[in-house]
Design a protein around this nucleic acid. Structure first.
Lengths: 243, 243
DNA sequence: CGGCTACTTGAATACTTTCAATCCGCGTGG
DNA sequence: CCACGCGGATTGAAAGTATTCAAGTAGCCG
């Protein structure tokens, strides 16, 4: 798959490239690989390592605590960058695990500094994307620190739905694929599996949303958003960078 | 205060500048202002707005939930950048509040894109700094999602101590200024004030650490770090950017 | 038909919050 | 100079919220 034909690039979530930038990215792409579910794409404390773009499938970025507990830091969706830390700092402190079968574009991380020299606008857009991620991360921080179980689950549902939607992966309505299982949600929301199950049950019985057979359905998005305190991201002022 | 003489720049936490970069920053600095405790430096949903460097004093970055609850997203220490989101995306979703009297360097945010064009190495270092912040943010996420109250407080103590230490603000030993009050800690750790008080009491009686009259004392750093699961950041491979 | 994994349910327990009362230090104004 | 008010800290008790432990169900695959 050549970058020029990449279907992801055309989705509203992503920035449009200049001709030169596209050429640069194409030259930076080194490979195209596949990873099975449950396999680690990146391991914490790994040194060096390439940068990837998730092309297809879902993954989770997570951190394992000394106690053995796991915290999912973010859900990685198609178009998201993986391993920027290893490219900039030389080391990652988190791991990334495939949830579904996953396809990755492998990028030559050594070319990152060249990108800064030759394509400043592109580099700036990369920074923008990081800042946006930071804002999402801030919301999750507030979620874990101050929200109740139902709010946490509701928020994750809507946020993920919206992220997919902007990538053209939510078939119009209020439905999208959702391959995460109870234990993924638990580790993402800072809850126990049991409590996640009860909370999902609650949301379903209130006719707000449900997850059934790998599909998320938002029955009542306005109420769900109100419950979760969710606000959709601004009017696409800064658009995401896909590398 | 001219940037060339800025005492912060020489601390180990910060990157060394080239002559041209220093000149650029000096030209970017627009003003030098002071803010009293409890005042907001940045307000959520503000559009535009300048970029600041915290020159002196402490501040907190926080997010207010619809419920009225507050989550402190990060502690802002001297040398930290404030308001990068407004410069890159044009809008911030968090607020920043002064904890102590605070002095700020005001920077012309419009020059940020020029920086990317003229000083790619500097721009790259800025990205590095963001990635480092992201790693710290990841740890806090894991803390709020999966750690017990004592671990949360212990972690915040050591991390903050270390950050100050690298800025030359922890007088050698195991002591540093700590102007945050119980309610700040509560909002940072996702706990109630009452529980923070009890937890601090516990840590003091176990002779691990205490906060007394605005001063943090780490009695037994190794045990405290073990309790919190704290790992000091790598061997300064990527150094922070001060703007 | 096992054996596996994901999910569900109930009860007991643990952790944290909320509420309420009290104390303390500090600056103000009588 | 001292009473007063205020914000912050402390303490005890009661109420929630979420976890853990323990069974038990359902679906899938060899």
């Amino acid at each position: 798959m050549a970058c020029a034909e990449c279907p992801l690039r055309q989705k509203p979530a992503f920035r449009t490239f200049s001709q030169e930038e596209l050429q640069f990215v194409t030259a930076t792409k080194a490979d195209h690989i596949t990873v099975p579910p449950r396999a680690d794409i990146v391991r914490a404390d790994e040194v060096g390592g390439p940068v990837y773009t998730l092309f297809e499938g879902w993954a989770v970025r997570y951190h394992r605590l000394p106690s053995g507990a796991r915290q999912i830091l973010d859900i990685v969706l198609p178009g998201d960058l993986i391993g920027l830390a290893s490219a900039t700092l030389g080391i990652v402190r988190h791991s990334v695990q495939a949830v579904t079968p996953v396809t990755l574009c492998v990028l030559d991380s050594a070319r990152l500094s060249q990108m800064f020299e030759r394509h400043p606008a592109y580099a700036f857009a990369l920074l923008q994307t990081r800042v946006e991620e930071e804002q999402r991360s801030d919301m999750r921080l507030a979620l874990l620190g101050r929200a109740k179980a139902e709010q946490r689950i509701a928020y994750l549902m809507i946020e993920t739905f919206d992220r997919l939607h902007r990538r053209g992966m939510a078939n119009g309505g209020a439905t999208c694929p959702f391959p995460l299982q109870r234990h993924h949600l638990a580790d993402a929301a800072g809850l126990s599996r049991v409590h996640v199950a009860r909370t999902l049950d609650l949301l379903r019985r209130r006719r707000l949303a449900e997850i059934q057979d790998g599909v998320l359905v938002l029955f009542d998005r306005p109420q769900l958003a109100a419950l979760a305190g969710y606000r959709s991201p601004g009017t696409g002022a800064g658009r995401r960078v896909i590398v």
